[in-house]
């Protein structure tokens, strides 16, 4: 081969490599990924209707309390839950619709709306606050962020994403999440205050396939500020696309 010919081939190859390089590593490709991810997560965690039976175990230092609940959910905004055990709390009901949260207290036959300061308290003393419950399905609009790399978490390949809240009234200004690449479930999360203090850690495990979607059957929330405090939720039975009557998500249901 002649010298000029060799040079032509080399430069073409070099040019092709540059283009390839740009295609693979362009920033444009990264921005799409975060939004895509959040969309996929939200998609996984929402549903038309859902019914489940779950056990919640609250551990604080030397005391362990176990609750059993039966819950219904519709879309992103409606959820209803009834406590089955223990006896003291049996019959207590909670209702969430749009922006309101209600509670039915059977022992005094009274409906109580939960608002203001109460929203930040742990539900039934657990490490999940009422607010945590309500914020579940709004990540796509509440947060924006960057992909900070890839890590393996609990044996699953994940993207590590650092999210920052878009507005000041979001409960956790900063979150770091590890999203399972195949299941698109945030298998692990760290929730931070504005100062950077780690407040809670949240893991989702026991991922099973239910009605064509991936669903974590176990969630653990650990309070990182108070040692020894954690809450475990184990779903005993989950059903999607359940036909539900409209009035399940009304205050009338509470009083029944």
């Amino acid at each position: 081969m002649s010298y000029p010919m060799t040079r032509q081939i080399t430069s073409t190859l070099a040019g092709a490599l540059v283009v390839l390089f740009a295609l693979v590593f362009s920033p444009r490709a990264q921005a799409v990924t975060v939004a895509e991810l959040l969309d996929k997560i939200d998609a996984n965690m929402t549903y038309d209707t859902r019914e489940s039976y779950l056990t919640m175990t609250v551990t604080k230092a030397d005391r362990v309390k176990v609750y059993k609940m039966h819950s219904y959910g519709r879309g992103q905004n409606e959820a209803a839950m009834e406590y089955l055990e223990p006896a003291r709390d049996k019959g207590t009901k909670m209702l969430k619709n749009a922006d309101e949260l209600w509670m039915w207290l059977p022992s005094v036959e009274k409906t109580q709306r939960i608002s203001g300061h109460m929203l930040r308290q742990g539900m039934m003393g657990s490490d999940m606050s009422y607010e945590d419950m309500m914020d579940a399905a709004k990540w796509r609009t509440s947060y924006s962020g960057v992909v900070a790399g890839e890590e393996t978490m609990d044996g699953r390949a994940c993207w590590k994403v650092q999210l920052t809240a878009n507005s000041p009234d979001v409960s956790y200004p900063k979150r770091t999440i590890w999203v399972d690449k195949t299941a698109f479930i945030p298998v692990r999360q760290q929730l931070f205050a504005l100062s950077g203090t780690l407040l809670k850690s949240w893991t989702m495990t026991d991922i099973r396939s239910v009605a064509g979607r991936q669903f974590p059957f176990k969630m653990t929330v650990t309070d990182e500020v108070q040692t020894g405090s954690k809450t475990e939720i184990q779903f005993d039975k989950v059903t999607f696309a359940v036909p539900l009557q409209a009035e399940v998500f009304s205050t009338r249901w509470l009083e029944r």
Partner: peptide
């Protein structure tokens, strides 16, 4: 509240 943090009402 109870000592566990559950809401506890009395009449």
């Amino acid at each position: 509240q109870t000592q566990d943090g559950s809401i506890s009402p009395i009449k």
